[in-house]
Amino acid sequence: MVDFIQNCLDGIMLGSSYALLAIGFTLIFGVMRRLNLSYGPSIMVGAFVGTLVYLEFKANAVAIAAATVVGAVIVGIYVERLCFRAIRRGAAVASMVSSFVIWMQLEEIVTVVFPDRTYFFPPMVTADPIDLGPFFFKVENIVMFAVAAVMTVLLHWLLQYTRFGLALRAVSENPRAALFMGINVGAVMFLAFVIASAFGGVAAYLIVSADGQITPLFGLWATFKGLIAMMLGGMGSIPGAILGGLLLGVVEAQSIWYLGTEYRDLSAYFLLFLFLVFRPGGLMGQLAVERELAATRRV
């Protein structure tokens, strides 16, 4: 029982980083209705910018984190302009494939600039784990969880209580109608991309600094963890992204403990497959899926 609870706690800590990745994903998907496969790679580039700042200037944690976020946002803007803005409406597959080839491009650019592939990434804190009764917590995990929680609250405030948040929700629910309200849809999409990239940048910093190293493969990892967490929670739903991230984290932690490391990803994909077949809307998106189905049937 203690093991099970400890696994859940570990899973939630891990899952909070997945949740941040999924939030970025779902923000982009929500307003664009297109999949950005380059999401992970662009924040991976951000993390390498952080590495560069560290290697060149021996910068402190705050500067490295800032460089990571700025790098992720700049690359995010590049992807938005090239793969999304420039490709006409109704060509979602083209956008997705375009974001994939740009992924390949980003990965190779990183490999050319950083030929050793695996680089040391400085930890944000160096402290011993904290014991709490029978349970223990790593400090970096607690920071990860706390930052994820703060960012989530910030995002909630932004979406629910600001003018921009209203515009963003309007665009993600119906871009055409949003235009009629006088909302500048293109600008909202752009800003959503920037915010999502910033979220991704923060997530990247937290994850990579906890790992202590960075490789170009982080891009692939981040894209797929974010995608799975988003789908588990329900596409386009922010609460869903959070719950999906936490669920993914807990399931992974439990499978590592009870089944072994080699079952970690297998159980995650198995869970995802079950969700898609039996509840494609995920934890929070089922209503929207059913409404869509009902609309299809009506027509």
Partner: peptide
Amino acid sequence: GYRMIVFGGLVAVLLIVRP
């Protein structure tokens, strides 16, 4: 060594013109 940098860019431009 630069294949994907070239290829990626070319394809991205191609998809803008011919989605």
